[in-house]
């Protein structure tokens, strides 16, 4: 039961992060491979406040969300000048830069050793220590995230973003402000990533750079591709499927020394197989 609850919590955290990635990559077509870095910044900020100050969880989460909004706008800005493949390279660089900072800024992030002992979240004076309580919190957060995503996509804003993905120049010719729409999308994606990072840090109580590196960004893209790009259902399904895989692998008799490598191997294979044979994922549209 406890095991299922922690699976649920982690999957819901990744649903929020998947929505962030889906918004940028799937809907607007800004192919970012650095969303794990923004996720990490959210996690470190919340960890900092809870470990070093008397600020409670929700205000800390709000600060993390705001910082990630600003950060994600800044890291997405190059997409206004370079598009498509070129932005992937830029974004790759941003991800490497972030990993370098997470690993080497030992004063702030604990470096490669990470930050242990992050206290559990407290909401309105209640410490959420049990997995059931945490599951309630992440369910509410993920639920709100899904409602927000649904509202945005059915509004003219969602249509505008889809149109921008298809033909930016034609959107400008229709008299729309492409820059403002892209910055708005980046801001929203930043907020989603920041909140999910904060939840992640308090749920695991330990974070280190390996959760926020390039592998993590690729895992995130795999979740979006396997679940299905551009749809709410795909963003929900992807994390649940991908996070169930390590558990399934643990049922197979393999030495723990190669378990991590085997997991990466399966993720990589899944990404390739889906891109080749089912680019629309399980419940999505073709990326």
């Amino acid at each position: 039961m406890d095991f299922l609850l922690s699976y649920l919590v982690l999957a819901e955290i990744y649903v929020l992060l998947g929505l962030s990635t889906n918004l940028l990559v799937g809907i607007v077509g800004i192919f970012s491979v650095s969303q794990a870095a923004v996720f990490g910044v959210g996690a470190y900020i919340v960890a900092f406040f809870l470990m070093n100050t008397s600020v409670s969880f929700l205000p800390a989460l709000a600060v993390a969300a705001i910082c990630c909004v600003v950060l994600n706008i800044v890291v997405t800005l190059p997409s206004l000048r370079v598009s498509g493949d070129y932005f992937v390279v830029t974004s790759f660089g941003i991800q490497l830069l972030a990993t370098a900072v997470f690993t080497n800024w030992t004063g702030g992030t604990g470096g490669a050793n990470g930050l242990p002992g992050i206290p559990p979240p407290d909401v309105f004076g209640i410490q959420l220590a049990s997995n059931a309580q945490l599951a309630l919190l992440t369910s509410i957060m993920a639920g709100l995230g899904c409602i927000a995503f649904w509202l945005l996509m059915r509004a003219p804003f969602g249509r505008l973003l889809r149109a921008i993905r298809e033909d930016e120049l034609a959107v400008a010719a229709a008299g729309k402000n492409v820059l403002r729409a892209k910055v708005s999308a980046a801001a929203l994606a930043g907020a989603f990533a920041g909140v999910s990072g904060g939840l992640y840090a308090t749920f695991l109580s330990f974070i280190d750079p390996s959760s926020f590196d390039l592998d993590a960004s690729i895992l995130l893209l795999t979740m979006v591709v396997v679940g299905g790009a551009r749809t709410l259902a795909g963003s929900i399904l992807g994390p649940f499927v991908l996070l169930a895989l390590p558990q399934l692998l643990s049922l197979v008799e393999i030495p723990t020394t190669i378990a991590a490598a085997a997991r990466q191997l399966v993720y990589g294979l899944l990404l390739i197989v889906f891109m080749l044979f089912r680019p629309q994922g399980l419940l999505g549209e073709k990326l």
Binding site: A155, P156, F157, R159, L160, A174, S184, A185
Partner: peptide, 12 residues
């Protein structure tokens, strides 16, 4: 609809 100006709900 993308071509129409000044739509409510075109901002997040």
């Amino acid at each position: 609809l993308v071509g129409m100006r000044g739509q409510f709900g075109e901002e997040p």
